[in-house]
Nucleic acid binder design. Structure first.
Length: 183
DNA sequence: TGCACGATGAAC
DNA sequence: TTCATCGTGCAC
């Protein structure tokens, strides 16, 4: 169990997205450790990516995306769910990886397939927005992988408005895993 | 100051 | 396919 370094996040977003698969997301809350194995992610490549929030420019909400890598970008969606993202690449690049599904590891209640449910089960809300993922209470760690991971590439979910960006296969998940949000 | 809409999930 | 529910971004 080794916490990911700043350098891990400060790289090409697609590479970071793919390598996040199989890693463990950990949130320590009230002395209790909640953890899930990341099995599905989506890459949001920056202001030029019409599906990315940062394509709206630097606003109070998207500020975190424009900040340094290795921080959490948490936002409210549809007025009722939160989505958890990891900021990637150098400061100002405004790219991130959305965590879409995890496989329960410890102390997760309810389903975890889908970005809203991941946050619900992990107790992630807007208070964790801009939180440093190199902290001790909210971070991502690598674990010794038993079998090699086979990665499936698919178009991202719910971004049909993003013109040609909607077609790009920037959603990645572990082949055959039972906890991904959609087939 | 108002309003349309979303990186969702569950029900119908 | 519809709805719950509200912050954000943009039009006026």
């Amino acid at each position: 169990m080794e916490k990911l370094t700043r350098a891990f996040y400060d790289r090409d977003t697609i590479l970071v997205a793919r390598e996040l698969l199989g890693k463990h997301l950990v949130h320590v809350r009230r002395g209790k450790e909640h953890a899930g194995r990341i099995v599905e992610v989506e890459a949001y490549l920056g202001p030029h990516d019409l599906a990315a929030h940062s394509s709206k420019g630097l606003t109070p909400r998207t500020k975190v995306m424009f900040g340094p890598p290795g921080h959490a970008y948490v936002y409210l969606i549809y007025g009722m769910y939160y989505c958890m993202n990891v900021v990637t690449e150098r400061e100002g690049h405004a790219s991130a990886v959305l965590l879409r599904a995890v496989e329960p590891v410890s102390n997760l209640k309810g389903r975890t397939q889908g970005p809203g449910l991941v946050c619900q089960a992990m107790h992630i809300d807007k208070r964790l927005n801009a939180h440093d993922l190199l902290s001790d209470d909210f971070y991502i760690a690598s674990v010794p992988e038993t079998n090699p991971i086979v990665i499936v590439k698919r178009p991202r979910i719910g971004v049909t408005y993003a013109k040609h960006w909607a077609r790009r296969r920037l959603r990645f998940y572990i082949a055959g895993n039972l906890f991904i949000s959609l087939l």
